[in-house]
Design a protein around this nucleic acid. Structure first.
Length: 538
RNA sequence: GUCCUCGUAGUUCAACGGAUAGAACAUGGGAUUGCGGAUCCCAAAAUCCAAGUUCGAUUCUUGGCGAGGGCACCA
């Protein structure tokens, strides 16, 4: 619906001003179902321009049918009010509207925890966020590949350190969990890298199992050892950089000229010992990504990697990669319980594991609490609210509304159909229109009762229409928290509708049931994208 | 010291450069004779400070102040 308005305005502006203008159309403002700032970017007399655009739109074929009213307010905002037909058209658009990402390949790389131990609450953020973002991009039409990088190269420092610990020569990564792992294994070899790699594979198996268990889908587990080191991709990357004259030697090490491409200083890629650095490995990894034919690559990194963003961007520039590279930084997570705040600190060794958090509050609640906040906020996980098993907890509030929808449907004739059939049922949008139409008629005879019923139906439909718009916005700017907000608002609109509008036994029962069924479908889809269970009963 | 984030009601969070800054929890009131009261309604309550850009700034720029993180030939 929003895109439809945009197109119509574009046509009008082109005709009136002979020049392209960047403008916005906003959904559901206080001043209308849709509002646009288009007149504000035209220059000159803003209000007069708004009038001209309004007149031009009124003369168009579609606008007068879709909107009952168009008005100008404030310094020159254009506000649109959906007509009954407009509301119905909007409902159709929920499933039929064109998707912006069609035919474009996107890679989302996330979690990528080192195979040296279990996942902690910091990984949880990247895990749930990346998973939901990938779901949403898919819903927006993109062809999405979800990748997890396993830093398991036998030559890497952390794998060697892990090996040393296993062989009793060090203490890195030594947790109770690792001690248990070590007990199970016997090694004939004494090489740090080999032993580290062997145990890392075991740890990785556990982590993969866990990630699957918490409902996160990964398409490709990318092993640094198998895909890069064994295929001599590090050397190839080095050759490539050498041929392009982007490296030089200093103090026995090999440096990359990143400072010429936006980084603060040049970086070492091969140490004077001959060992490669993590940075070269990461370059080789991204050279590999570049071969994938992606339009867009999204890397979700932890806050401890934020210093690497500039150097990676520098590499993209120097090698002239065509794909869009979006590096998102997931900020640190703190737990808050009562007045106490626990920080995630590797040094202090009091890492809080993700599995323990999920055990404490449940998977759905856990996902919701992570996903309702933007990735860049330094979030505090509110344990007290998360543990609350009542309406205070937004997750249960939303699920409760869903259960009510299902309950209404179950009590109606539709209950004869299997629930699966119900999901696939094609909704008769005209029926909903009929319901509104008859209510409007009643409204004309000033029935107070009908009037009170009209508004909640309209509000509910408006909220439903926004679903594809929310998905589209998130696919553009990655602000996943908008979807949790949307799901909550939808549940809230439905609760008000439920209070004011009697469905079963009403004159328009069939039509209202269709609306409830559609609401249920949209709520279920929203929750599915977030990875949170929709429940018919709770 | 420098780089990256963040700073919004008592608390946890929202807000494509837009209009009267939204929610939730907590607090204080209220509703209900019916589809699940795990509901609904009302009230009080906030943009760290100072300049600048703009018709318009929580948002952008600069400078402070405060918090977290990064600054290795570790990852």
């Amino acid at each position: 619906m929003r895109n439809f308005i945009k197109k119509e305005i574009e046509k009008a502006v082109k005709k009136l001003f002979k020049k392209k203008r960047a403008f916005e159309v906003t959904s559901d403002t206080k001043f209308g179902d849709y509002s646009s700032n288009v007149a504000m970017v035209t220059g000159g007399n803003l209000r007069m321009n708004a009038e001209r655009i309004k007149t031009e739109l009124a003369a168009s074929k579609n606008i007068p049918q879709i909107f009952s009213k168009t008005e100008i307010t404030g310094p020159g905002f254009l506000n649109f009010y959906l007509s009954e037909k407009g509301l119905i058209e909007g409902l159709k658009c929920i499933s039929d509207c064109p998707k912006q990402g069609l035919g474009q390949k996107v890679q989302v790389e996330f979690i990528s925890a080192n195979p040296t131990g279990e996942l902690h609450i910091g990984h949880g953020r990247s895990a749930f966020y990346g998973d939901a973002l990938a779901n949403i991009l898919e819903a927006a039409g993109y062809e999405v590949e979800r990748e997890y990088l396993i830093n398991d190269s036998k030559e890497s420092t952390q794998i060697k350190e892990l090996g040393k610990t296993v062989l009793g020569k060090g203490e890195f990564y030594l947790t109770d969990y690792l001690k248990r792992k070590i007990k199970d294994l016997r090694f004939k070899i004494q090489d740090d890298g080999e032993v580290g790699y062997a145990i890392a594979r075991e740890i990785q198996k556990d982590n993969e199992k866990f990630i699957k268990r918490i409902g996160i889908k990964i398409d490709k587990w990318f092993s640094e050892e198998k895909e890069l080191r064994q295929k001599t991709e590090f050397k190839k990357a080095l050759e490539l950089l050498k041929n392009k004259k982007l490296i030089y030697e200093k103090d026995g090490a090999i440096w990359l000229k990143t400072s010429k491409y936006g980084d603060e200083e040049d970086r070492v890629i091969v140490r004077s010992t001959g060992e490669i650095t993590y940075f070269l490995s990461d370059i080789a990894y991204h050279i590999n990504k570049n071969k994938g034919g992606y339009k867009k690559i999204i890397d979700i990194w932890g806050a401890d990697h934020q210093g690497h963003v500039k150097r990676m961007m520098a590499v993209k520039k120097m090698l002239g990669w065509k794909f869009d590279l979006d590096i998102l930084i997931s900020q640190l997570v703190t737990l808050k319980e009562g007045e106490k705040r626990k920080k995630l600190s590797k040094r202090r060794g009091d890492i809080i594991l993700l599995k323990d958090l999920i055990k404490e509050v449940g998977l759905d609640v856990c996902r919701w609490f992570y996903l309702e906040k933007s990735l860049s906020t330094h979030m505090e996980f509110d344990m007290d609210l998360a543990k609350e098993r009542s309406q205070k907890n937004p997750v249960y509030y939303v699920q409760y509304a869903g259960a009510r929808m299902a309950s209404i449907l179950a009590k109606s004739q539709i209950s004869n159909l299997k629930s699966q059939k119900l999901e696939r049922r094609k909704f008769d949008f005209a029926q909903v229109g009929l319901a509104m139409g008859s209510l409007t008629k009643k409204n004309n005879v000033e029935s107070a009762e009908a009037k009170s019923k009209l508004s909640p139906i309209r509000n509910l439909i408006k909220k439903l229409i926004q679903f594809p718009e929310v998905v589209e916005d998130i696919a553009k700017d990655y602000q996943v928290q908008r979807l949790t907000k949307y799901a909550y608002e939808l549940a809230s609109e439905f609760s008000q509708f439920y209070r004011d509008v009697r469905v079963i036994g009403s004159k328009n029962e069939k039509e209202l049931l269709a609306l409830v069924a559609l609401t249920r479908k949209v709520l279920e889809d929203s929750l599915k994208l977030l990875g949170i269970k929709y429940l018919d009963k709770m």
